[in-house]
């Protein structure tokens, strides 16, 4: 168990490092940098290169990269030139809002997705299944920026029920959470559907019926639990998708979380913020994946056995 855990943590660190490095390179490949943005379009070339010199941006990329990694390891992710504050502090300030949004959206998506998936999967090919499969296909295909704008038009502008943007009280949470939940619900529902449809053909389901159990007991006690195992695995792989979705949704609804901060920072070439936000999101994703594995080993005794013997 212990060597496996060590390996696992090593892999997590490797993943975060990979995300940081990729972001570092991609950011610097984009045209423009802090100096050009800060000085504006009217600045002379001499001014720009003077500022570059001052900021250390004219050093070779490898030197900058190693310098950045060196301080990142000690927990120093640099200073945001716009906020004039430690970048990680700025990002962490915005983090609770993103957590609130993604947790609410996940709760919505898991509840509705599992329900729809079980309903469809227990009678594959029937009308319920075809209707649900059709709906979830559409939900998965709609881009979040579009469904977000449509929700704003309907709920905020036409019906005037909810605020269109901002992040004050809970009423502000409703629309972005729904927007973010839509594609995630579809993913959960579709995986659950195929998993339930497969599990209900297993011989042990026939065994359960042969005991004289009600269909409800067969479904809840025998089918659902076994169906959830692959759902947890695949859903955990989509946590990154959820985080990416949060970036877009926060931007659409001006939700003051890490996502909207990140988009603004990319525009301003505020490297420190972009990198700090990337590190944080990467850590969230790998941690959630680990939690999903732990949950699965609780659900499936065969995985538990495999983990202790290897």
């Amino acid at each position: 168990m212990l060597p496996q855990l060590v390996r696992r943590v090593g892999l997590m660190i490797f993943t975060v490092w990979g995300a940081v490095s990729l972001t570092f390179v991609i950011l610097r490949l984009a045209p423009g940098d802090q100096a050009t943005v800060q000085l504006g379009p009217d600045a002379t070339a001499a001014d720009v290169s003077a500022l570059r010199e001052e900021l250390g941006l004219n050093r070779p990329m490898l030197v900058q990269y190693l310098d950045y990694l060196g301080s990142a390891i000690t927990g120093d992710f640099g200073e945001s030139y716009r906020f004039r504050e430690s970048a990680m502090t700025v990002v962490l300030d915005r983090f609770p809002a993103t957590v609130l949004l993604t947790v609410t959206a996940s709760a919505l998506a898991l509840t509705i997705g599992l329900l729809l998936g079980v309903l469809a999967g227990r009678s594959p090919g029937r009308l319920v299944d075809r209707v649900i499969s059709g709906i979830t296909l559409v939900m998965q295909a709609i881009p979040s920026f579009w469904s977000g704008i449509m929700l704003i038009l309907l709920m905020a502008l036409t019906l005037r029920l909810l605020p269109s943007a901002g992040s004050g009280d809970l009423r502000h949470l409703v629309l972005p959470a729904i927007t973010l939940a839509i594609p995630f619900t579809a993913i959960v529902a579709r995986i659950t559907r195929s998993s339930v449809a497969e599990v209900t053909t297993e011989p042990y389901i026939l065994t359960a019926r042969s005991k004289g159990l009600s269909e409800r007991a067969v479904l809840t006690r025998h089918a659902v639990r076994n169906s959830v195992i692959p759902v947890v695995t695949i859903v955990s792989l989509h946590i990154g998708t959820l985080m990416g979705g949060a970036v877009i949704v926060e931007q659409v609804f001006a939700w003051e979380g890490v996502g909207s901060l990140l988009v603004g920072a990319v525009g301003n070439r505020d490297y420190a913020i972009v990198q700090a936000a990337t590190v944080l999101l990467a850590i969230v994703v790998v941690t959630m994946n680990l939690l999903a594995d732990v949950l699965n080993s609780r659900l499936d005794p065969r995985i538990r056995a495999g983990a202790t013997t290897s």
């Binding site: 011989p203 042990y204 026939l206 065994t207 019926r209 042969s210 005991k211 076994n226 195992i229 005794p301």
Partner: peptide
């Protein structure tokens, strides 16, 4: 089912619920 007539299935490795 179960109380009057019950069934012993062919393959016990698939006829028993793996998570119970």
């Amino acid at each position: 089912r179960g109380a009057e007539i019950s069934v012993v299935f062919q393959d016990p490795s698939t006829a028993l619920n793996p998570t119970m």
